[in-house]
Design a protein around this nucleic acid. Sequence first.
DNA 1: TCATTTTCACGTAACGTTTCATGAACCATT
DNA 2: AATGGTTCATGAAACGTTACGTGAAAATGA
Lengths: 332, 332
Amino acid sequence: MKKELSAPTMKDVAREAGVALGTVSKVVNGLPVGEPYKRRVEEAIQKLNYQVNSYAQGLKASRTHTIALLIPNTVEPFFASLVYHINLALLRRKYRMLLCSTDSDPGMEQEYIDMARQNKVDGIIGLTYNPNLKIEEGTPFIAIDRSMGPKISCVTSDNFAGGQLAAEKLADLGCKNVAFLRIGSSLTNEPNKRKAGFENGCLSRGLHYEMKILNDGDPYEEFEAFLTEHIQDGKLSFDGIFCVTDHLAYEILKTLRRLNQRVPEDVQVIGFDGTRHFGSLEYTCSTIVQPVSEIAEMCVELLLQENAPVKPPLICLPVSYAYGGTTLEERN
Amino acid sequence: MKKELSAPTMKDVAREAGVALGTVSKVVNGLPVGEPYKRRVEEAIQKLNYQVNSYAQGLKASRTHTIALLIPNTVEPFFASLVYHINLALLRRKYRMLLCSTDSDPGMEQEYIDMARQNKVDGIIGLTYNPNLKIEEGTPFIAIDRSMGPKISCVTSDNFAGGQLAAEKLADLGCKNVAFLRIGSSLTNEPNKRKAGFENGCLSRGLHYEMKILNDGDPYEEFEAFLTEHIQDGKLSFDGIFCVTDHLAYEILKTLRRLNQRVPEDVQVIGFDGTRHFGSLEYTCSTIVQPVSEIAEMCVELLLQENAPVKPPLICLPVSYAYGGTTLEERN
DNA sequence: TCATTTTCACGTAACGTTTCATGAACCATT
DNA sequence: AATGGTTCATGAAACGTTACGTGAAAATGA
């Protein structure tokens, strides 16, 4: 029994295989090496159960095979799903992820950006609502959902088309008078287009619509008041509601139940995100589905592509509608 | 303008401050250094905007300030919440997290364990249902929810007490005839004790109970059949149901609605986990709440404590009951 | 067969830290 | 004033890689 105290190094492998250090390095990195040498090195690696030390590797080469993911939290379904898919996309490429859950707090975000710098990450994927985040010059950065300026690519769902689709669906399902509900601070920039798209869809279909946008505080109480105002003789004047997120839709559904409105008979509700319980095929409400795994894949691909010819400033991925019990079943 | 091409190193700081390399290292690591030297070094660090290179640090010192979190996925609420809180607990201690989302796939788990070895992580926190996972000898490991043998500490909720508490609550709320529902493969080991605790609670309170445990397949259909069997003249013979997870409770609630049973008037339902929508104070159903943030804190604390006197084999943290709309409001 | 090119393993010099033996400077004691 | 003891910045060695210049051996051409 030799000194198995510390993990074997390339030097050990070289000695075992009777070759030079550099040769082992080449084999490990898949560079061309003569057949007999290669075989002997591979055997030695097997025998010693050798693994490269990524810290030595990261120190010498500049590439660390690590990217940082800056995200508000890991708990909201859309974010959780993003973390999951990005992790998968990275794993496929043998990359590691430095998870930076920021609570959307600017201080924490900056702290994490610094940590990322310390860790010499090869790039950053960020979902942040902080416009004046200081990113180091050389570090590749891909934004999700929020444009960070012309020099930084942004990957997002086609929010405008999503809003439009929601309006069209409600029209198709027989609605005449619809509402758009939104909590102000919860979404900025890109997702703003959901509203614009919805408006556009309503106009083109001749739907009468009303917008209700709230700024934080106790939004759900205010929404309840808003809906109550629109009830005459127990009957809600809206027959369709588009909520800016599934989460909001969930709360609104509870409110509607409280107000004795039947969903979808009296009023149909469409959310946005495509939230599902894990492992379930059913959506928690009828919704506009964001292509999360495509977003994840696109971010990683864009970030890691070696010789980027041009960085496209904005990439919109197509959304789709999914039935989730809160709209009338489609006739077909 | 000097060569600002590459990030400044300790050498640059040393030159700027007019001190030796080792002195800078000491200042950075908070070791005692004479006051005038210390001040000059700190100024130089400020001026150059220096950050340690964690790869060089990790290579030389063995400590990498990184731990791996092995978890089935990041999407189920309990797991997502765990990721969130563990991340927070690590950040507080200036530690990084290597996220290993395994899909409970043994191959992937092993792959990640290897990756963790490559990355010289200081320890691993693991939630895995794979009993014969090969963990390297020297690496500290803390298990969540599933005991991995006598040499490895396991942190878990007090599942037995939780089951008992559920039974007692149902008894307090006037139930006479209750059921326990569970999907077999979904939970092993520790959470098994939920059943035992519930049984114990029922016996001590003289509650009549029935157990229904399913093995995968299409469990929800089978649960529906089971419940349908227990309906006589539109009335369910159970007046209380304890579901092994909130997720299951959610599905059962949908089933009950389909069967025209009112919750909580006809039948009360209690879940397990304490699932909430992000930012919401309301639970998605009445439930036994797992102390997620305490579990997270305990794991990290246990893993990182320097000179561990004894590694306790099993640590049960207390659970609590929370009202979430699917039980009768407590009289008090 | 000899000269010329090509191939490719070799070995060494970094990469940016930490650690430790070294010795200079200071203080206290006789 | 001289000695012994203590403090503490110094500078070099090492950590495990990668990359590059070197030269020996093999392959080509005349």
